[in-house]
């Protein structure tokens, strides 16, 4: 999936809105359902990590000077 987390969340909102509007065909609903399920997994996976990663960089090097 090439989406960012932000785009995925936006798309989920969109799908949820479309489905609650009741204007879509059953085929389309099932397609959106499949897409939504994938996005939900993608987003939950992204949030799964429970330990913060900390990386210290060497900022003392004076770049380009």
């Amino acid at each position: 999936m090439n989406l960012s987390f932000e785009q995925a969340m936006e798309r989920l909102q969109e799908i949820s809105d479309i489905l609650s509007e009741n204007q879509v065909s059953i085929d389309q609903s099932l397609e959106l359902y499949a897409e939504g399920t994938k996005l939900i997994k993608f987003c939950s996976d992204k949030l799964k990590a429970v330990t913060l990663k900390i990386e210290e960089i060497d900022s003392e090097i004076n770049e380009g000077v």
Binding site: Q13, S16, L19, I26, Y33, C43, L47
Partner: peptide, 21 residues
């Protein structure tokens, strides 16, 4: 908050599809 939001999406999406079918 985010996980709760995702859960709400999940609920709303499956409820709507279920209702429809």
């Amino acid at each position: 908050t985010l996980l709760f939001q995702i859960m709400k999406y999940e609920e709303s999406i499956s409820r709507n599809v279920k209702d429809k079918t």
